[in-house]
């Protein structure tokens, strides 16, 4: 009897509790808790002790000093602005290149499509760091790419404007270029997914009704792919805004992005509360885009 009761309990309650509980507990301990620590840290006060912060005691329990500094110190505001603008421009160019590529993928023959899709996904599996590194090689002053561009520039412009090399590295231009490069697959894949589902007979119906191809695109294809555009756009924008590796390697140290600022405050200035506060502020900024993303991602993958 007790065995049977135990058995019944295991089937009804025990097993689901185990399935749910284990991953739940893991995420609470290693994700939620650390995150809450950061939130608390953001209202602590910086000290010179180890660890370099203090809550309560001679310092206030809740100090909004860090947040006040974010809002008043131009350095932080500029960093936020740089991040958002860079991410927005990168997203725009990803869309500009990614949309035709995704649309082209749906128009080529089946065997080509598989090969090309593979070529889009392949870089996604190779090291992110190395993809950034590959551009460092191209953008350097003495690289064949830079030499080629410099020659082209010097050939085209008046002699007074001639340059020895094009200063690409360590600029926002470099950051945006590399972001577009590394995040492009994130744009192409959801776009392709939403374009592929479109019924080609709709196009044909529209053409049949007398629309020219360009009109068909504007009237039929584009409106239906908007969920894919938004999902892909957010998928690029959100990580790009918090990017650390790219600005560190190819960015302009004079106008840092948020990711780099957080890291610098933490490791170099040893100002943990400040790093935490910037992190919280960045997350708050990202809440909107995230919600938009999750709404449209469901739509892009859903039936329509």
């Amino acid at each position: 009897m007790t065995r049977a009761t135990l058995q019944r309990w295991l089937d009804d309650k025990g097993w689901p509790a185990f399935l749910i509980g284990l991953p739940y507990l893991w995420l609470v301990v290693f994700f939620l808790l650390p995150f809450l620590v950061v939130v608390v840290m953001s209202v602590a006060t910086k000290t010179t002790t180890a660890p370099p912060f203090s809550l309560g005691g001679e310092h206030p329990w809740i100090s909004l000093d860090t947040y006040a500094r974010i809002l008043t110190d131009g350095l932080y505001l500029r960093a936020f602005l740089t991040s958002l603008v860079n991410a927005a421009i990168a997203t725009f160019f990803c869309l500009l290149i990614g949309y035709p590529v995704a649309l082209g993928l749906t128009r080529v023959s089946h065997s080509w499509r598989n090969i090309l899709l593979m070529l889009v996904i392949l870089p996604f599996w190779t090291s992110f760091l190395l993809r950034v590194y590959a551009w460092m090689g191209l953008m350097g002053k003495t690289s064949w790419f830079n030499v080629m561009l410099t020659d082209a520039w010097n050939f085209l412009v008046p002699i007074d404007w001639a340059v020895r090399s094009i200063p690409m590295m360590h600029s926002n231009f470099a950051v945006i270029l590399v972001m577009v490069y590394t995040y492009l697959p994130f744009m192409i894949l959801p776009l392709y997914a939403s374009l592929e589902r479109l019924d080609p007979t709709l196009d044909e119906a529209a053409m049949d009704l007398g629309s020219r191809p360009a009109r068909v695109f504007l009237d039929v294809t584009l409106p239906q792919s908007i969920p894919g555009i938004i999902a892909g756009g957010m998928l690029v924008f959100i990580p790009a805004a918090g990017e650390l590796v790219i600005p560190t390697l190819v960015g302009d140290a004079g106008s840092p992005m948020i990711g780099r600022l957080i890291s610098d405050e933490f490791s170099q200035a040893k100002d943990w509360p400040m790093a935490a506060a910037i992190a919280v502020a960045l997350l708050v900024l990202m809440v909107g885009p995230t919600m938009i993303y999750s709404r449209y991602q469901a739509k892009a993958e859903g039936s329509t």
């Binding site: 994700f31 995150f35 620590v37 840290m41 990580p239």
Partner: peptide
């Protein structure tokens, strides 16, 4: 639960990294 399994996907890596580091310390 469903929040916890999606949040790390969009959390900037710097923040995940720093929060884990502070947590471990």
């Amino acid at each position: 639960f469903s929040g916890l399994v999606t949040a790390p996907l969009i959390m900037p890596e710097v923040i995940t990294g720093i929060s884990l580091l502070i947590f471990f310390i």
